[in-house]
Simulated assay, not measured.
Amino acid sequence: MSVLRASALALGVCLALAASAATATASMAKIDTRAQFLDALSGKSLRIGIYGLSLDVQPGGKIVGRAVGRPVTGDWAWQDGYFCRTIFWGEREIPYNCQRVDYDGDTMRFTSDRGAGRSADFNLR
């Protein structure tokens, strides 16, 4: 394969991936209220299968679950349009953080630092 043809193929793959990511983001809507958040979660758990992660975010402000064979516990509150939480994974504390939440009906995306940080997508089951 010529260098030009390989470059064109690589560019095409990059553009397809970028378009796919943009579509995924565009189809998600920001959750603005505690009521919207609880309605979306009603009767479901947050899951990331590859990590064996399953979390139940309870209406009373508790988080319980497991990840990579260890218990996960924590507390959460809805503040100024963000999901704010403290979590322990086993004995390790994961610091307090307020996160933007987006949702598309099947997936919930949490973005740390009020939407300015890293994101994690959870399947709802």
Rank of each mutant, 00 (worst) to 15 (best):
V57Y: 01
L38M: 07
A40H: 02
G61W: 13
G61L: 07
S45N: 15
K62V: 06
T73Y: 00
G49K: 08
G65P: 10
K62F: 01
K44R: 11
I63P: 11
L41V: 04
R47I: 03
R47A: 10
G52D: 13
K62C: 00
G74F: 04
R66G: 06
S54A: 12
I50M: 11
A40E: 12
K62M: 07
G52I: 05
V68R: 14
D75M: 02
R70D: 08
V68K: 09
I63V: 15
L41W: 13
T73E: 08
D39E: 15
G49C: 03
S54G: 12
L55Q: 10
G60S: 09
G52Y: 10
G49P: 11
G49Y: 09
V68W: 04
R66V: 08
S42W: 11
R66H: 12
V57N: 00
L38E: 14
I63G: 01
S42N: 14
G65V: 02
I48E: 11
L46Q: 13
S42V: 03
D75T: 14
Y51N: 08
K62R: 14
I50G: 06
G43Y: 05
R70I: 06
P71A: 04
K62G: 01
G65R: 03
S54F: 00
V72I: 12
D75H: 13
Q58P: 08
L38G: 01
G65M: 06
G74R: 11
D39Y: 07
P59M: 05
L46R: 12
A40C: 05
V57R: 00
V68E: 15
P71M: 04
V72Q: 02
K44F: 02
I63C: 00
A67Y: 07
V72D: 06
S54W: 00
S42D: 15
A67L: 06
R70G: 01
G65S: 12
G65I: 02
G49I: 06
V68Y: 03
L41C: 04
V57H: 02
D75F: 02
I48P: 00
